[in-house]
Every structure is written in structure tokens, then in C-alpha cells.
Amino acid sequence: MPPTIPAAEPLERIPCQWCQSMNEKAALTCRACGAPLDIRNLVSESGWREAPRLRDMTEFQFSSSTCQVEGEIVPVAEIHLGANDSVFFEHHIMLWKDDNVPLSVLQLPGGLKRAFAGMPFIISVATGPGRIAFSRDATGELVVLPLHPGMEIDVREHAFVLGSHQIDYSFVRVKGLTNILFGGQGMFMDRFVTTNSPGLVLLHGYGNVFERKLKAGESIMVEPGAFLYKDSSVSMNVEFQQLSSGFFGGTNMSLARMTGPGRIGIQSMYVHHHTE
């Protein structure tokens, strides 16, 4: 006799409020993004939600790999790659890896010149099976963004930790999007797109990270140094502030007007990695 299923109970699933993945009712952390499922979201009255504070040693999965997040002040993302899985990343953020994990270089479309801190800008790829770990250079939070098929997000340059192999990576140059202290040279924005299969993007935000969902047409002015990521449906326009008194002289204060619909993520500490 087949076991009778008590109505509703074993089928009950709870959605993760950060990435919308469905989890078993007893789960304490989301299996797709590691967000704690048992504590209340921290949302400010102005509508910004703090990125989930990942518990030390939290583990989550993507394709046949797992990621464990270690440490809290400058968190480390440790990836256990399954066979045939690979992740791509900027080479200077590698912390350690197993001997036998092969590294290769991602062929970037277009011949656009880009350099980081004097080094050529190279996206490296690590292929499983094996372990590799990454961390950035200052206090901050890891932001886990599982991408469902058909999603597209734009990320501040040098803010991503890694992307999984299902994701198409490209970048664009945005003009005027730098703080006045650094001269308005413009910056690059990394673009991550999924087509048919889901993927994972990990970011490192400096300081604390906050996310907000903008309604269609709703907009917010953000200091360019604070911008971390956005859905590609959110438009970004750099506007020079109209300031009443004229003593600003040659300098301008620019703010980015972000207009919905979509998510926008910001970081509370501004670390500028300048791209020539």
C-alpha cells in the first residue's frame, strides 16, 4: 500500500526572500544563495533591504558545485567545483586553489582595451573537479545572485567575484560615472546574461550592501561610487546636480539617476578601482 501523503504538509516549500528559490520547510539557509531563512529581513523605512548576512561557513549549491562562505569581515568564497563545472573571475582575487584545478583564460569579445592597476585585464576560468577560493581586498559582504534563465544584470566594474560557466559575460563603458574626487573618466560595467540555464554570480560589495526594488518609473539618485549592481531593466543616467551657489568652479557633482523597474544594489563604502 503506498504511503498516504498528509495533505499539504510534505509539499510545503518556503521561498527564499532574497533569490526566490524554493526550499524545504525545515531548511535554515537557502540552498541557492545561502541566505538565512529563519530570521527577519532587515528593511529600512526608506525601502532598502540589507543583503542577507550570510552565516559563517554557510554552504549553497549551483549546478554540480558548492560554495562555502567563510569569515565575516572580509568573507572568502570557497568553491568546490563539480566535474565539468567552471567559474570565471578576475585573476587577482584568487586566494588559494588545489594543485590540480586547471586555469584558462576567457576569450573576451571585441578588442576593447582595459587594464586594472597596471595589469592587463584578464578573465580567468577554473574548471572542476577541485577547490578554489576567492576574496577581495577590503571589508565587505558577499552578495549571492542566482540568475534564473533569461536574466540580465549589470555590475560595477571589479565588483564581481565570480560567475558560473552558464553565464555570458561582457562589459560596456559608461561615461561620467565617477565621483568628482576621481575625475570623471568613466568606468566599465560588467554585464551578466543567462539564456537557457540558470547561473550564479557572486559579488563583493564594500562595507554593507543594500538592495531596493524600483517600480516602473520610480527613480532614486545614487552617488556613483555607491552603485553596485542593477537589473538591466533599470536605466542609469548621470546627472550633474544643479547647485544654487556658483563657487563650485570647475568641478561638478554628479549623481546617477536610477529609474525602475527592477532591482538596484548599492554599497556603503566607496573603494575606487580605477580603470585606464
Binding site: 532587515l42 528593511v43 529600512s44 523605512e45 526608506s46 532598502w48 540589507e50 569581515i73 571589508t139 565587505g140 559582504e141 564594500y206 562595507g207 554593507n208 543594500f210 556603503s268 563604502m269
Partner: peptide, 22 residues
């Protein structure tokens, strides 16, 4: 997310590493 008041206005302090005054 502690909230404090001044005049008729409010300020929320958000985040723990690099706190934001909202």
C-alpha cells in the same frame, strides 16, 4: 536599523561594517 529622531525628522542607521545614516 535603529531609529532616532531630531526635530520632526527621523534617521535610521543601517549596516554594521560601514553604517549608513538614512
Amino acid at each position: 536599523m535603529a531609529k532616532l529622531q531630531f526635530g520632526d525628522s527621523f534617521c535610521q542607521i543601517e549596516g554594521l561594517y560601514v553604517p549608513v545614516a538614512d
